[in-house]
Structure formats: C-alpha cells, structure tokens
Design a protein around this nucleic acid. Structure first.
Lengths: 208, 208
DNA sequence: GTCTATAGAAGGATAGAC
DNA sequence: GTCTATCCTTCTATAGAC
C-alpha cells in the first residue's frame, strides 16, 4: 500500500508499478491499482488517460532503472576476478531488491515486442561489451566470430545472476522439498557466481 | 492452425496449447483458441468445462513433457565432458522445438504458485541430483553444504541452456542492432555451453 | 456433438456533479 | 482534483435448438 501523503500521481505510479510487476500487463486490474493507491479508479484515467499509457510509463521507468544498474563500466586496471565480484554483487543486490523485475521484463518483451521496441530506443548495446576487456576474452581470428564469442560469454555470465530470480517460483517449490531456502541460496550465490564464472573464463582462455 | 481431420477434443487441446504458450493464462482468449481450432467457442466449454480447466490440462501436459525431457539420467561410466555434451544437446534441442516453453512455465508458476503446486506433485526432485556423479562435485565437508553447492552448480548449468530462450525477446532486439541472429547464436551455444560448464567445473574442482 | 443466441459478469473509460 | 454514476465493450459460460 502506498502512503497517503504523497502526490496522487506518484501514488498511482507506485501502485501501478507494484501491480504490473506482480501480475503483468494482462493480469493487472485498474481497480486493483486504484485500491493499492487508495484512490478512485477514475483518477487513473484522469492522470494517465488509459491502462496502456500507464503501463508504458511504468515500463519505461523500470527499463531505464535496469539499464543504469546492470551495465556498469569497469576500469581496465581492475583484475578480472575483482571485476566479476563487483559485477555479480551489483546485479544480485539489485535483483534482491527487485526480485520480480527480470521475469516481468522478459515476459512483457516476449508478449509485445513491437510496442517494447520503441521503449528501448535508449539501450546502449555497445556499453554491454565494455564489461570485459579485450585481454579477458579467449582469442579468435575474425571480428564476427569474436563478437559472437563475447555474446556467448556475456549471456552466460548474465544468466548466472538473473536466472535464479526469473526461476524463483519453480526454485521455491524445489527448495521447499529439499529443505533449502531461496534467501540462503541467493546469499551463497554472490560468492559462487564469481568462482564459477572466473573458473570458466580462466580455463577457456588457457584452452584457446 | 490445427488440422481438421483430428478429433475435436485434440484439436482444441493443441490450439489451446499454442494460445496459452503465446499469451499466457491471462492474455489467452477462448475465442482465439476456438478460431485456431476452427470450431465454435461453446465447444471449448463442452469439452473442458472452463478456461481454468483447459489451462490446467495444457499446463499439466507441458510440465510432464518438460520433466521427461529435461531430467536425463547418466551412467557413471560416461565422462563428465561427454555427459555435459549430451545434457546440453538434449536441452537446447528441446528448447529449440519449444522456444516459448521455459518463459511460459516460469511465468505461470510465478503468477499462481498455489494452483501450480498441486500440478507439480509428480516432480521427482531427487532425479535432478543424479545428473552429476559424486566425484564430479567439488568436495565439501558437511552434507547440507554439499547439497547447497550442488544446487548452485545445477542451477548454473541449467541457466546456461534455458536463459537464452527465456530472454529471447530481449536478445532479439540486441542481436538485431549487432547484426547477429538468434538462430546462429543457439547453434553456437550447443558447443559453447559444454566448454563453458566443463571449464568451470574442472577449475572449481582443482581449486577445492 | 455442434451450432445460435444470450445471459451475466468484469473491466476499461467517460460524463458530470461537487 | 476527486468522486458518483454510467456507458460500452469484452469475455466467459450456459441454455436450448438442431
């Protein structure tokens, strides 16, 4: 529930963010957003005109937030292992605070790629490549092959921190039967992710 | 579109599977399912009584299919690298044929964990552990720590093959800007996944 | 088993009073 | 700016003819 003393527009926006994150565009109800915000349904249309516009406002803010948090740039002088540690720490902490975000994000993109495409104009893809330095990537001959290889590595690294949150629902069920807790698992993952990724990169380099 | 010569019930079921996979429970429309099947809307209720029951039937069949395909058991005599190759080949091929399945699955579980829990009674969690042999897991002292460590490894391995499909929508946009294709990326991943996971496991073992 | 017709409910959006 | 009342559309589900 959103606090009463904030401006109505912001209360609506925050309530809508919660509702959309939890139920997605299709599952979210304008009535439920109004209830969360503690205001009348018709005010949603007064401030944001339609459900679609309200959703777009929320989605745009969230994807901007993700971009800022998830594409950190590292100095060349930072050693690889330390770089991975910073990378995973930042990612996992962010997802701990926003556990529903990755699944929401991927889901809405899949459901409506055309609408989303216009919302992602600002995404600076080149920045993603700056996460690793040249000397940390196994050598290859051609430029294209190298780009493809880098993408394989980056998606693998990213998946190590993002996937547990995307799969949280399924993992909760599995962990319950094994007597484990998701929270502990995530705490351990901060360390494990570094070791796993570092071991992989170190070993692949020496193989090449 | 589903073929006319099949039994109505099966045509409905297949049409519903397509619709639910594409739009999810909330976004799917009974009218659209009927259109896909080429029959009248009211027949959906005649055969499956309600949207919820139709969804449950589809979900149960899909999760059974996933379980069968995604928890292969390996012989102890198969070497680790070969085991990983078989594992990733089977997973990625399955996801290539059913690219929407992982996102659909994780999404529906997140949206409705209670309803889903009853649908997953048959999930044999212990089988998941049989993917790796004892001697392929870095050594730890306590039993619990060991179980936690194994889960870290298995979720990492699983994410390497599943995450690209979960994130397909976002990757499509990124790849488009980089002049890469998702299909090529997946083909390359069959080989890359083995190398990455093998390198990580090999190096973590020697570290311990 | 399949169709037509329609009920009944829910959800998004707007008009208008205050 | 905020609320009440209401419209209109969409969607699920059912009744009943064939």
């Amino acid at each position: 529930m959103v606090h009463k003393d904030k401006k109505t527009e912001q209360r609506i926006f925050e309530a809508a963010t919660e509702e959309f994150l939890q139920k997605g565009m299709d599952g979210a109800r304008m009535q439920d957003i109004a209830d969360r915000a503690g205001i009348h349904k018709s005010l949603l249309n007064y401030y944001f005109r339609s459900k679609e516009r309200l959703f777009n406002a929320v989605f745009e803010a969230l994807s901007l937030q993700m971009q800022e948090k998830l594409t950190p740039l590292f100095d060349d002088t930072v050693p690889l292992e330390e770089k991975l540690r910073l990378f995973f720490t930042e990612h996992i902490l962010f997802f701990q605070k926003n556990p529903r975000l990755p699944l929401f994000f991927l889901n809405e993109i899949a459901r409506n790629p055309e609408m989303i495409r216009t919302n992602l104009q600002k995404l600076d893809v080149e920045k993603v490549f700056k996460v690793l330095n040249d000397n940390e990537i196994p050598e290859t001959n051609e430029i294209t092959r190298r780009k493809e290889f880098l993408i394989q590595i980056l998606t693998s690294i990213f998946s190590i921190s993002a996937f547990p949150f995307v799969a949280k629902g399924a993992l909760d069920i599995i962990f319950e039967r094994l007597g484990l807790s998701f929270e502990d698992y995530i705490e351990q993952r901060k360390q494990f992710a570094v070791e796993f990724a570092f071991a992989a990169l170190k070993n692949m380099r020496s193989q090449n």
